[in-house]
Design a binder for these strands. Sequence first.
DNA 1: ATAAAGTGACTTTTT
DNA 2: GTCACTTTAT
Length: 705
Amino acid sequence: MDILTDLNPAQREAVTIVEGPVLVLAGPGSGKTRVLTHRVAYLVRECGIPPYRIMAVTFTNKAAHEMRARLHTLLGPQVRRLTLGTFHAICARILRREGERLGIPSDYVIYDSSDQRSLVRQALKDLNLDDKTYRPQAIHGAISRLKNELIPPDKFQTQTYWQEIVRRVYARYQELLGENDALDFDDLLMRTVQLFRDHPEVLQKYQRRYAHILVDEWQDTNTAQYELVRLLGNEHRNVFVVGDEDQSIYRFRGADYRNVQRFRQDFPEARVVLLEQSYRSPQVILDVANAIISHNTRRQPKRLWTARQGGVPVTIYEAYNEIEEAQFVVREIARLVREGLARPGDCAVMYRTNAQSRALEEAFMRQGMPYKLVGATRFYARREIKDILAYLRLIHNPEDRVSLRRVINVPPRKLGSKTVARLVTWAMEQGISEYAALQRLREVEESPFGTLARKRLLAFLDLLEELRATSRQVGVLDLLDLVLERTGYERYIRDGTEEGEDRWENIKELRTVAAEYEGLAPPEALTTFLEEVALVSDVDNLDAEADVPTLLTLHSAKGLEFPVVFIVGMEEGLLPHSRSFDDPEAMEEERRLCYVGITRAKERLYLVYAFRRTIYGYSEVSEPSRYLADIPPHLVAGAEPWKPGAESRKEEEIFAPGERVRHPTFGEGIVVECKPVSGDQELTVAFEGNGLKRLLASMARLTKL
DNA sequence: ATAAAGTGACTTTTT
DNA sequence: GTCACTTTAT
């Protein structure tokens, strides 16, 4: 009935195949979210499947929240019984409940990437390895990949010296996680698989419970996630996955788009449904996207189509450098808004690397145009937030040494590195955690500390114990406030500087988040709060409320859509990124990344690149991205305006040294040098107040004075 | 013990 | 040019 009325035939098919595995291949904007939501509603309302027997996996928490909200309107309060979330969140909950079987305490903590890095550092230190020779990040990356491939340290067949080092650090790293009662992101998946493999009775329980499993963004699952779905779905085999090989962009995280094909092998009876009609973008944008993605060899050609013929041709713009690039974006947004063609909130600016956001932010600020930024210094990675969370984690589980070491002298309480190091060794000698060592310190006479240090350590312990005692009676918000009060954190952070005020604002923001957990009873409230806070992504916090442009990476743009999309930094070395040059698989992924960006656009698309770009403080000439050359000229606004120096140039456009010129951005200046380059001139111009600039004569829009 | 000043790697992308 | 970590001066 009404669940099916506004679906097209293919969507309807996907929603109504109830029995057996289904693979949905869904192009961008083809309504896959809609299909997922409606399918759940259909299963519950039309097929009488109880919501608690359905598991739906989304890629971000934001997607999960949105889906839950939509289902709430279709199904009412019973959506609460649905298992709905990211792989990580769902696994975290399973381990909280069943982890004891693997020796994981139910109050385990989740380590984020910076905690992980410091643990790798610790492991290197324990093994007497130099962290300059073996970069913790690189080692951790290798460990993470192994975990996502479900390879434990003892099963890792090493062939090189580097791998052997990784194996040893990996083994020690896992031990350290255990000693800290901690799991990292990858453990959440790997240990859940381990739980299911080692304890068939647990697997059976979950297999029987979940009559239907639905997974979004299937092309970005890794081996561990694939295995989870395979195990859980094996009983009922009602596994429904939605994906698009062309949008697989998380290879670095272990994702393998070949899981789409692998699904067909493991579930040979699977029905395949193709969603090829796009409701998002007009034909022009689809044509551009297709022109770019069709160069990839390892893909099945698709026929994406739309009823929305035509559309605004795409704009390709060459800026002089990243500053002018940002300026162009801001001015163009202002123009669109002024002419009533878009609202500020309709616009998104996307880039390959987070570092590119700086120039954009500066341009927005200079023009006084508000914006919102996804990522960069992520909220939960900020120092002040990590500090407060470390206190809360420590209250939750005092075995968490990483957190203890983080806050033992924050705010400063005169416990210096010497004292802390002594405490760490003293605890290690006795084979106990630092917290336990502090407790022992109170009982014993003999200790390696002076009277003063001992007194300060015990004062810190008293503080923690007081906080822990109170935590059993009060909500998360009150606890947070108590931490702030008892530690004197506010005085510490609000040091009168502007930065201090910003940091305090962030803490107030964290209080707002904590306030959402007030309804829950004390111990679970803190557990849930810490768990959810550990697993949020930046996109999750994107509020649609504010009517301002969004700045975000191409990766975080996945699953989103905007009427107006700017992709900046369309240059060789940036998109595609130079790190991918020597790896054909990686190069195909760069192309997909570009494809994902383009297909976010509902109305207008701008592809922008800069002639020069500053990297590491040095300005270097860059070359337009190869992807631009793949776009048929008839899809581009104006007749190839971005190709410099193609036609023969007029007399008045030829410059000579000594001439006075005017530039729209840099103002007046004098031509210092002229170099002929392929039917064009590269000019060096000294601008008054702006210094020397190197410009291409055909592009610079210079006028002679 | 803390703050200031110096050194070196670093820019892919994130749950 | 910038972050994070280390050494040096107070």
